[in-house]
Amino acid sequence: MNIISYIGQKTINFFEEFGEISRLFGRTIAYVKDIGKDRSLLLKQMEHIGTGSLPLVIIVGFFTGMVSSWQAAYQFKGLISNGFIGSAVSRAIFIELGPVLTAIVIAGRVGASIAAELGTMKVTEQIDALESLGISPIRYLSTPRVIAAMVMMPILTIFANAIALIGAFAVANFFLDITGKVFFDSVQRLFHLKDVFGGIFKSIFFGTVTALIGVHVGLRTTGGAEGVGLSCIRAFVISAAMILILDYTLWTIIF
């Protein structure tokens, strides 16, 4: 009986939280009309989420590309010519590795930092102070962050894709003796624009959900410094799980 009531309670909590996040999303989008007035807030967040994440995205992209080449060569060994590495690796990067790994890295960097910043503001009454000045925290804090993530995540994904391709080519060229012509001919041979756009389309959802969960968790923070720490972990765990669930769902729709 205890297990049943535990599962029941957890299920209710899940749907309650899902409802709250959906409501937050609706309220966040409702304030998009004011984004012109809040462009300085938006630009600041775009810089933080986009430009600030570039070094990390470059490192992740480059190493992902390099390891993909090794992986492909390992799996092709004795079966398929290494001349196909370019097409195999590029499709994996465009469809899955670029968007998903970028999103998970951003969930760790940006989602957790949004939760920490808003969580600290919550426990130090700064959110209440905003409200008392007649400023909606949703308009002032949530909308710029969610829109910035929605816009910057696809741009970061494009960067990650390009850097990963360079990393894959570097390994193919230096260690697997594949020339540039062979590698990029192979990329081109099985290139589908849908792969690239599908991955970028997914990244819009990943960016939105990462920022939204960061805001939601941050605004629900209680319990001082410990609470802020827990919120960071929570924001990352929920975002990462949601990215993978969304990835699967969107795959079935797009491809």
Partner: peptide, 29 residues
């Protein structure tokens, strides 16, 4: 929100926005 603009609130912890300067804090509203 319109009603809150008529209210000045001094919080127990002062609740100043720590990412802003004193000037920005005072004139934010």
């Amino acid at each position: 929100y319109a009603l809150r603009r008529k209210i000045g609130f001094l919080f127990q912890s002062a609740a100043l926005f720590d990412s802003m300067t004193v000037f920005e804090n005072i004139v934010l509203g």
